[in-house]
Write a protein that binds this DNA or RNA. Sequence first.
DNA 1: CTCACTGCAAACCTTTTGCAATAGA
DNA 2: TCTATTGCAAAAGGTTTGCAGTGAG
Lengths: 138, 138
Amino acid sequence: MHAKGYLDLMRRHGLRVTPQRRIILQLLEERRGHPDATAIHRLAQERDPRISLATVYRTMKVLEDLGAIQRHLFEGGPARFENADTDHHDHLIDIDTGKVIEFSSSRIEKLQEEIADRLGYEIVHHRLELYGRKKRQE
Amino acid sequence: MHAKGYLDLMRRHGLRVTPQRRIILQLLEERRGHPDATAIHRLAQERDPRISLATVYRTMKVLEDLGAIQRHLFEGGPARFENADTDHHDHLIDIDTGKVIEFSSSRIEKLQEEIADRLGYEIVHHRLELYGRKKRQE
DNA sequence: CTCACTGCAAACCTTTTGCAATAGA
DNA sequence: TCTATTGCAAAAGGTTTGCAGTGAG
């Protein structure tokens, strides 16, 4: 999903495309990391100083409701956002730098399903986060 | 670890055993669930109305630092606390009731290690939470 | 021309903290 | 006695919201 896709998505839902939203969407496009609201706000303000933090939060909420982004609450920090157009994956967070590495394991997913099933539950969603530190030498 | 154990632990570290702490520790003993600070506070006040929420938080912080309890930040709610004297386990949260079910899987643990290793990381700790809904009929 | 969207500031919610008073050891 | 601990109220930190003004469609 590229910039056009985001905008189309919003238009399709009868939402207005304002300059603020245009800038925020563009930023999320260009920097596909796991920024928090403050980081997005800072970058957005470089392009238009009028953009408020409230608008950033409101825009992220809209995108989240549309299923276009995901909100992650990693340990001890503000919410971080990520494009939702990639396949499902989990996260390894570098506890020294805050850097996020994505990974996925169908074997783990399968085991999770089995466990939930055994307990009589259907998984609606899950959260697997590894907090680690870079090894010295491989 | 029973009540005596908690108290001893605090004494061993030169901490004072106040009536407030005594009550909170006793509560954690009796109700080994995953209560949040407000729940602990409410129960504690039934036994001594003078106990403040601040003291609950401070006591939990002390216990956490001593390694006697663990703090969990499940989705969309306040921190919840759990005795740390059981073996490692993960959690399945019932999204309808908030109930927490514990489980553990050495196979998942092993796969996590392998993944982190492959990415050049050592896991310091992790978080695996399944959010699910009870199945109708087994 | 409408009403969705915005900026601003205030409100919210959970958690922490400064301070003066209290009370374990 | 001495200072760790407490209650209270205020502060902190991230996120949301009420409101009146603005501007996209």
